[in-house]
Simulated scan of single mutants.
Amino acid sequence: MADTQQVDAKDERRVARLAKQISAFSREHGGAEGQVAYIGERGARIVLVGEDGGWGDLVAPSVEIANRAVEKAGITVHDEFDGEFAAKVTTGPYEWSRMAGIQVGGPKNPPSDT
C-alpha cells in the first residue's frame, strides 16, 4: 500500500509541475489552448498554442498525467492538431530556417552523439 501512495504522490507532483508550466505559458501568451498526443514509451506531448500565436510543448510521462495537467491548468484542449488549431501558430524566421535545414540554406542540425 505504501508503494502505491508513493507513486500517487509522485504523479501528483508531476501533474502540479506541468499544470504550473502550462499556466505560466498561458499567462505569458494571453491565454492558451493545447493538444495531448501519445508519443510511445516516452509518454505524451502537450502542445501549447498561445492567443498571440506563440507555441511550445511539454512532455509528460503518460497520457493520463498530461490530461490531468491540462485539466488542472484550465486550458481548452483539442482532440487533434487540425488545420484550424494549427493556423493559430505564428512562426518566424528562426522556425522556418530550422525546418528548412540545409535544403534551402538554413542552419544544419547539430550532429548526433550516438
Rank of each mutant, 00 (worst) to 15 (best):
R17I: 12
A69I: 06
F81K: 11
I39L: 04
H78C: 03
W96Q: 15
H78S: 02
K20Q: 12
G74E: 05
V77R: 01
G92K: 13
R68F: 04
V59P: 02
P111T: 04
E95S: 12
K88H: 06
A37N: 11
Y38M: 04
V77G: 10
R42W: 01
A24L: 06
A2Y: 00
A60V: 07
E28F: 00
R42E: 10
V63F: 02
Q21H: 06
A2V: 15
G43F: 00
E28G: 15
F25H: 10
E95W: 10
E51A: 08
F25L: 07
V104S: 12
E33A: 13
S112M: 15
G31S: 05
V36G: 08
E51Y: 00
G74A: 06
V47H: 02
A24I: 01
V59S: 01
A44P: 05
S62I: 10
I75V: 14
D11Y: 08
E51T: 11
E71L: 09
A60W: 01
I75S: 03
V59D: 01
Y38W: 09
A16L: 05
K88C: 04
G54T: 14
D113H: 12
G106W: 07
D11Q: 12
A9S: 12
G83M: 09
H78A: 01
I22A: 04
P61C: 02
R13A: 11
H29E: 05
D113V: 15
E84F: 00
D82P: 09
G56Y: 00
V77I: 13
V47M: 06
K20S: 13
A44T: 03
F81P: 02
A66L: 08
D3K: 04
S23K: 10
V7P: 05
A60F: 01
Q5P: 04
D82F: 02
A37V: 14
T4K: 09
K20L: 05
T91F: 03
R27K: 14
A60D: 07
P111K: 02
V15P: 08
M1G: 12
S97D: 13
E64L: 15
D11N: 14
V15Y: 02
K10C: 00
L58N: 05
H78M: 03
A44F: 01
S26T: 07
G56R: 06
G34E: 02
G53R: 00
G105H: 03
